[in-house]
Amino acid sequence: MRIVLGIEYDGSAFFGWQWQEGGLRTVQDAVQKAASNVANHSVTVICTGRTDTGVHALEQVVHFDTQAERSHHSWLLGINANLPDDVRVIWVQEAVGDFHARYSAIARFYRYIILNRPTRSALQRDRVTWCHQHLDAVRMHQAAQNLVGSHDFTSYRALKCQSVSPMRKMYFVEVYRQNEQVIMDISANAFLHHMVRNIAGVLMSIGTGDKPVRWAEELLASKNRQIGGVTASPHGLYLGGVFYPEKYGLAKHEIFNKLPANAQRFQHET
């Protein structure tokens, strides 16, 4: 039996998602131990996409295979009872057909939150990126539209990125202001290492007026990461959710109902 979980976590105190040698605290290790306790045997948890140190998740989707028979309610309560306070399973269901948390996904959605005010926040310090210079969200949004579509994103991936191909299809990038926050909502078929944070860094330079609007497009065309912008902090980055074909019967996170109109239209296309 294959069990599918929707998980949220605060990544502030984790060394990313993926299990690592040396006893480092990771989300995968915490979830695997909790699920194994409930299943009464060792399980391996597969995620949609690995998140880096300090990155959060509103809804990470994972699966594991088990011989144990438990009700959805028992899996939910049992796993959560064995998890630390900064990780929670928010839903459970059995996999349909050939479902695979990573390979069945057709798009990933991330949200990047920037606190844009003169002073840092005591309460949000690990959950937002801080920028004291005023950001022009309209300029940032305009620049970001040049990244939509299928492109070679070499200029926006980490130099040590191990992906075989830099080609990705960007479905939408929405940048908008909500009071003191500037928010970037972004979705693609998949993302390269540090891709979202590198895009955020470039757009922030454009938003402050340090760089022109055309800079985002010029970097894309250059296919050269070494002339790209600063990689933005991980603290403002959230894996917001995952799009799967409807045949798998996975409901989209409620956050999708709150996306700007242009982004909402994408839901119908998938």
Rank of each mutant, 00 (worst) to 15 (best):
Y112W: 02
H56G: 06
S165M: 14
A30M: 06
M140G: 05
V4D: 01
W215I: 05
S150D: 00
D85W: 08
A81Y: 09
T44A: 12
L250P: 08
D152E: 07
R88C: 10
V202K: 03
N198S: 09
L115K: 05
F266A: 12
K258Q: 12
S74M: 06
R25S: 10
I46W: 06
V164P: 08
G97V: 05
A95W: 09
A216V: 07
R108P: 06
E218F: 01
T208C: 12
Q28C: 04
I7A: 11
A188D: 07
S205E: 11
I106D: 09
V38Q: 00
Y9H: 12
I206R: 03
A122L: 13
D10Q: 11
A34M: 07
E69T: 14
R127S: 15
V148D: 01
L159K: 12
A137C: 01
K247L: 09
F64D: 00
D136S: 09
Q28A: 06
Q145M: 06
G236Q: 01
G228P: 02
L24H: 13
I199G: 02
I79N: 05
N40Y: 06
F256N: 08
H134P: 05
L115Q: 01
S12R: 03
A188W: 01
H194D: 07
D210W: 06
A216S: 09
D85V: 13
D210C: 10
T66V: 10
V62T: 09
H141C: 07
E254M: 11
V175N: 05
V173W: 00
G6C: 08
H151M: 10
N198E: 00
R177Q: 15
S74R: 04
T26I: 00
Q267K: 11
A95E: 01
V128C: 12
I113M: 02
V43W: 03
I206G: 07
A143V: 05
I113T: 12
M167R: 12
M170K: 06
A221W: 13
L203Y: 02
R139N: 15
V45D: 04
N116L: 03
D86F: 00
K252D: 14
S36Y: 01
R102D: 07
V164A: 15
V89H: 02
A57I: 01
Q145L: 08
S42W: 00
D29T: 14
T119Y: 06
R102N: 14
I79L: 11
F191V: 07
G6M: 12
K160D: 15
L239G: 05
G49D: 11
T270L: 06
V138Q: 04
S187A: 15
V213K: 07
S150Y: 00
A188E: 02
D10V: 03
G207D: 10
E21N: 04
S163W: 01
D210K: 15
N257A: 15
E94C: 09
I3H: 06
A261D: 14
V87W: 02
H253L: 13
V242A: 14
I255E: 05
I106F: 05
M140T: 14
E69W: 08
S42D: 13
A13T: 03
H268F: 10
S222T: 09
V196N: 03
L123E: 11
G207H: 03
I186T: 09
M140V: 05
K169R: 14
L58M: 14
V31Q: 06
V89L: 12
S205N: 13
Y9K: 11
F109C: 11
V55I: 08
A39N: 07
T154Y: 03
H100F: 15
H63P: 07
Y244I: 05
Q60V: 03
